[in-house]
Design a protein around this nucleic acid. Structure first.
Lengths: 351, 351
DNA sequence: ATGAAAGCGCTAACAA
DNA sequence: TTGTTAGCGCTTTCAT
């Protein structure tokens, strides 16, 4: 039998043992300055001797410092990818409100860089303690982050990042690997006789394409393992179901030997109607992200695999970690939290 | 832009608004009695009006109540399943020590019911506030839990449970479904021409077999989807590698057409040597649980799939939740936390 | 550069 | 049955 009790010392214990006041211990603890080197050393010594760690409860009780975090992500419609992330932020913000954290959510139009920059302006004016954002417009993000640095405002990336910027924290999966995993799942059961890679037409117009890395992981895997296999790209319009149906039907009419379908963005559910209308025993469909409509498709057996990373949870954890980071005034930079990729099938969907 | 700030009320706000003292609010909040129905109602009304929730920080700061939890699991050797769980408990206990929670870990011999009962006796004598345990000896566990109930000691199950007992919390996967998922993974890529189900010889002797439910899920799935497919059971001795090698070699010599192998316990790594020695292009191996040796086998490509549930994390979360439950004096019973089953392959192993 | 003292929101004796 | 009061361990003015 082993008991874990950790008898815990208080700041008063440290103060007494070091022959100083509690305020002084606090000063060295949080590097608030106004402490002579001599007392500093003395206190530090006692701290390590006693293995003292501050009581976080008492600390946050006593502290009246309030932190403000701005989250900046694309605007969304119901059921879309970003809604899940938004929900994660909201949940996290609510849980952290007792800790004197307030969170503002900013949403910009994904197809309008101007609207992004307006949000940036608003955020800078609100002088937050931290900003959490996702990269959609790389150049604008870079400029924004430089501005933040000038004002000593910390920032963290979620989902994707720009490596040569001084971000504090990053949360997301390894996009390239997620693409490879998707390709593996697609070709694992049966050898492909051609692959349909369905993309969103909008991606063509966009300067930035957040799914590019993932798509590269996907195509690289296929090219390496099935060099003979042709990857057909089909573009569809998310806002035009009829055109989508027509386009996809036409493709498969012309390419009846293709049974492997993948979408490397989060909207595989857009194929729902087509798949339901045209059953195919040999078909295998792989998609990404656990948004509700995708999960419904999986449950119904319309698609076979989803590569996911629990968007909402990731957002929740990311914001919580960032809050923690700010509260504790951590100094480290470029801390990457690579989130685990999960494989979802009908078999492990609801457990 | 949406801001989440939750302006939060204090117990004093409630007291003032209800025209009583803070102590009275506290009394109705935690049903400590000594409050007239009239004031009770008044206070309750204000609480809901203000949507007041106590500040947990302040609460645990002020409270001097210490909780003691006993965890009861099988003794283990390095690298075994239970070690991971133990690690989860230890980590959780350390994190919670500041919250005035102390945890004692009791380990019994899995093959010796007597040793289990000795632990039970010790635990009862130590009068803990809660007990967290895993069911290995159902009858003994039942007797133990009845004793706990008599002493008003709460208990929670992890990994498996006895449904008709008055446990507070349960943490674990749905064993039956995990077996089905394993069977699905095994037969997903290629149709089986016979399946080798490798079991631990000890399981034969044991009165109880914790993996029975999972095995049933596995065999039921196979029987339903591949009624013609023969499931061959091979028993091996975990403590005798030579005998294991010999036995397995002999089996596959006699059954060269069998390429599908599964182990429904956590020790698929026991097949490591055999698999390395006898490569087989067509072979598919499915195992369970994320213990280190299994992960190594997966990484090396010796096995194909692992169905897991992050043992350590599950144990960590379970103990944390149980502590929370005790601290908050929650009254609910039979709360099941079904942990999500994950599919692990070489492709998503280290992310 | 250092210490004294007043809280943070809550709990728990004790008094009434 | 109710209120008063003294902390819990820490932060933060304000003196010194």
């Amino acid at each position: 039998m082993l008991t874990i009790t950790n008898k815990t010392y208080t700041i008063s214990d440290v103060a007494k043992k070091a022959g100083v006041s509690r305020a002084t211990v606090d000063r060295v603890l949080f590097k608030r300055g106004y402490v002579s080197q001599k007392t500093r050393d003395k206190v530090l010594k006692v701290i390590t001797e006693l293995n003292y760690t501050p009581n976080a409860n008492a600390s946050s009780l006593a502290s009246k410092r309030a932190f403000h975090i701005a989250c900046l992500i694309p605007r969304f419609r119901q059921g879309e990818y970003w809604e899940e992330m938004n929900n994660g932020f909201v949940a996290s913000a609510k849980d952290y409100s007792s800790r004197s954290i307030s969170v503002s959510l900013y949403h910009f139009d994904q197809s309008d860089e101007e609207s992004f920059m307006n949000c940036c302006k608003d955020i800078l004016e609100s002088k937050p303690d931290g900003v959490m954002l996702s990269v959609v417009f790389p150049e604008a993000v870079t400029r924004f982050c430089k501005d933040l640095e000038k004002q000593h405002i910390r920032y963290a990336f979620i989902d994707n990042k720009i490596d040569n910027l001084d971000y504090c924290l990053y949360f997301g999966i390894d996009s390239y690997k997620s693409g490879q995993l998707g390709a593996w799942l697609l070709t694992n059961r049966t050898e492909p006789t051609g692959i349909a890679l369905v993309r969103i037409r909008r991606d063509q117009r966009h300067k930035s394409d957040p799914n590019r890395t993932r798509r590269h992981g996907f195509t690289d895997y296929i090219e390496e393992h099935f060099p003979e296999c042709n990857i057909h790209t089909i573009f569809i319009d998310p806002d035009n179901p009829d055109e989508t149906m027509g386009g996809v039907e036409e493709f498969f009419r012309e390419n009846p030997s293709v049974h492997h379908i993948a979408m490397t963005n989060s909207r595989v559910f857009l194929l729902e109607d087509y798949i339901r209308k045209h059953p195919d025993e040999k078909r295998i469909v792989v998609g990404f992200d656990d948004i509700k409509k995708n999960l419904d498709c999986l449950r119904e057996g319309l698609i076979d695999y989803l590569v996911i990373r629990h968007i909402k949870k990731q957002a929740y954890d990311a914001l919580a970690a960032f809050a923690e980071y700010l509260i504790k005034d951590t100094q480290s930079k470029h801390t990457n939290h690579f989130v685990h990729m999960e494989i979802l099938t009908q078999m492990n969907l609801d457990n």
